[in-house]
């Protein structure tokens, strides 16, 4: 029992650290990707190629003046960014970061907890995430912040439905709600290649819907209406400064990392990689390679997030709503029907 606890605590701390590190360097990557797409070089003065830039930004965030507006609700003003950050970090608990390691005569699973309702847990945490923005936006006592918060909440609720429906189709093919099992099922072989029967092959439309919704849930361009700077100043974080603003911005990048991890796990095989059982490597080595592959997939998705951000302009608000309700939800329903028919026919 105690050894089990120590394993878990080590794993939790490691996952926490890695998530924060990824979020930290996502800010750097974002600036670099933006610069490269716009034919610039981006930050390159702090350290070699500017790799110390995130640290400099962090120091700056900490040293800035903590300012709470006079008419703001003080308690809720502080609660907002905390809720944002907490919910952003909570999801990492159910993601299988790798298979299992055989160390010190025991098997250590690289998943913090394998809930039998893992997907729903992710979904629940995501749906709570909007409170951070709403509370922060309202507590600022500023019209722009409130508008940003309202936009965020209505956008999130609208896209959660399509996201849930696309997950239902996935659950129908996998037959389980546990993320650990879903990833394990994708280990099967296809065309003689082991570890390549990824869900994207069975659910391409579902993946597309899920990805679009993930963009919307993370408030990333083209869905960044809650903080659209040319209409709402800064959106929900207009009044925030110092590390509280840092928390809001950080939460966005953490969300991006986590949703990349979820997309990789649900649709792109998680820690599975092609030929994983045919190479004849030891179990531990395969696990380590698998985790590396998972992170490669995550980095790829984060790059996709940024690539899209620096390519597409922002939606208009009615376009956003029309897309959510009139396109994605019917599409997701059609996807469920097709999936159901195929399951019945193929069995």
């Amino acid at each position: 029992m105690e050894i089990f606890l120590i394993d878990k605590i080590v794993l939790i701390v490691a996952v926490f650290g890695i998530t924060l590190l990824f979020a930290l360097y996502s800010t750097y990557a974002e600036r670099k990707v933006a610069a490269f797409i716009q034919d610039r070089l981006g930050p390159n003065r702090a350290g070699i190629f500017g790799i110390l830039q995130p640290l400099a930004d962090g120091v700056k965030f900490f040293l800035k003046e903590e300012f709470i507006p006079a008419h703001a609700d003080k308690a809720l003003f502080i609660l907002g960014p905390s809720v944002s950050m907490t919910t952003a970090l909570m999801t990492s608990a159910v993601i299988p970061w790798g298979n299992s390691l055989e160390l010190f005569d025991r098997v250590i699973s690289l998943q913090i907890t394998d809930l039998n309702i893992g997907i729903l847990y992710v979904f629940a945490v995501v749906s709570i995430g909007v409170y951070g923005i709403m509370i922060g936006g309202w507590a600022s006592n500023n019209k722009f912040s409130l508008l940003g918060a309202l936009r965020a909440s209505s956008q999130m609720i609208s896209y959660e439905i399509a996201m849930g429906l696309s997950i239902i189709a996935l659950v129908m093919t996998t037959g389980t709600l546990s993320l650990g099992e879903i990833v394990q099922q994708q280990n099967g072989s296809i065309f003689g290649i082991s570890g390549a029967s990824w869900n994207i092959i069975y659910q391409p439309l579902g993946f597309l819907i899920f990805m679009i919704c993930a963009f919307a849930e993370c408030n990333r361009t083209p869905f960044d209406l809650p903080e659209s700077e040319n209409e709402l100043v800064g959106g929900y974080h207009t009044e925030y400064s110092s590390m509280k603003l840092g928390f809001f911005l950080f939460a966005e990048y953490t969300n991006m990392f986590i949703s990349s991890a979820i997309m990789s796990s649900l649709y792109f095989g998680g820690y599975n990689f092609p030929f994983m059982d045919q190479l004849g490597l030891s179990h531990n080595l395969v696990t380590i390679l698998g985790t590396t592959f998972l992170f490669a997939k995550i980095v790829m998705f984060i790059f996709l997030f940024m690539w899209v951000r620096w390519t597409l302009p922002r939606f208009r608000y009615d376009q956003l709503m029309r897309m959510g309700w009139k396109m994605l939800i019917p599409l997701a329903l059609i996807n469920i029907i097709i999936t159901g028919l195929l399951i019945v026919v193929l069995k």
Binding site: F123, S127, V130, M134, M156, E160
Partner: peptide, 23 residues
């Protein structure tokens, strides 16, 4: 299951709308 659905439906959706209207 009830736990997670309770959070998704009540805390995650209905109360958001509630808060929305009150704000």
């Amino acid at each position: 299951f009830l736990f997670i659905v309770h959070i998704i439906v009540y805390a995650g959706a209905i109360m958001v709308l509630f808060l929305f209207v009150i704000m």
